[in-house]
Amino acid sequence: MPAPSSSERKACWDARDLLWKCLDDKDDKAAACQNFQSEFEAKCPAQWVKYFSKRRDYLKYKDKMQKEGFTPAQGPRQPS
């Protein structure tokens, strides 16, 4: 598979940005952004769709950890 041209990459990134904005505005309700999701999948290579989806999940998780902090889970009790 040849690498996407610069115009194809720009179209993909623009579609991704529109989808992410819609998801942010709609509290991650994918059904409300289905038309943007379809456009994103049509304009981007499948591997990029997978990467960008995981990337968004990671960025949202990272942002949540920075805002709310991290509380480690308690491990098993140590015998006395």
Rank of each mutant, 00 (worst) to 15 (best):
N35A: 10
Y51G: 07
W48R: 11
D28P: 02
A31C: 02
Y51P: 04
W48C: 05
D28I: 01
Y58S: 07
R55Q: 13
Q66W: 00
Q34A: 08
A32T: 08
D63A: 15
K54I: 05
C44V: 02
F36K: 15
K29Q: 14
D28M: 02
K67F: 00
S38A: 09
F40N: 02
K54F: 12
Y58H: 05
P45Y: 04
C33A: 08
N35S: 14
D57Y: 06
D63K: 15
A30K: 09
D57N: 09
D63T: 13
K50W: 12
E41Q: 10
N35H: 09
Y61L: 13
F40E: 03
C44R: 03
K50R: 14
R56I: 03
K60L: 12
Q37P: 03
Q34T: 10
Q47N: 14
K64H: 01
C44T: 03
A32Y: 12
A46T: 12
F36D: 14
P45I: 02
K62E: 07
R56L: 12
E41C: 02
K50D: 14
Q47A: 15
F36Q: 15
S53A: 14
D28F: 05
Y61P: 00
Q47V: 11
A30E: 09
D27S: 14
C44D: 03
L59V: 10
E39I: 05
M65H: 00
E39Y: 06
P45L: 04
F36A: 10
R55T: 08
K60S: 06
D63R: 15
Q37R: 15
D27W: 04
V49G: 09
A31L: 06
K67E: 00
A42N: 15
V49P: 07
K60P: 01
A31Y: 05
N35M: 06
K60G: 01
Q34Y: 03
Y61F: 14
S53D: 13
D27R: 13
D63N: 13
A31E: 10
R56K: 13
E41S: 06
C33R: 07
D28T: 00
A32K: 15
K67W: 00
Y58C: 08
Y61N: 12
A32G: 06
K67R: 00
N35P: 03
R55K: 11
S53C: 06
A42M: 10
F40K: 02
K29W: 06
A31H: 05
E39S: 15
K54L: 14
A30W: 04
A32C: 09
E41W: 01
S38H: 07
F40R: 02
P45V: 03
R56G: 05
F36I: 03
N35W: 04
D57Q: 10
C44K: 04
L59M: 12
V49W: 09
W48P: 00
Y51D: 13
R55M: 09
R55D: 13
E41Y: 01
R55F: 13
Y61I: 04
K62P: 00
F52N: 11
F36C: 07
P45E: 04
D27A: 04
K26S: 01
Y61S: 11
Q34K: 12
N35G: 02
S38R: 11
E39R: 15
K67C: 00
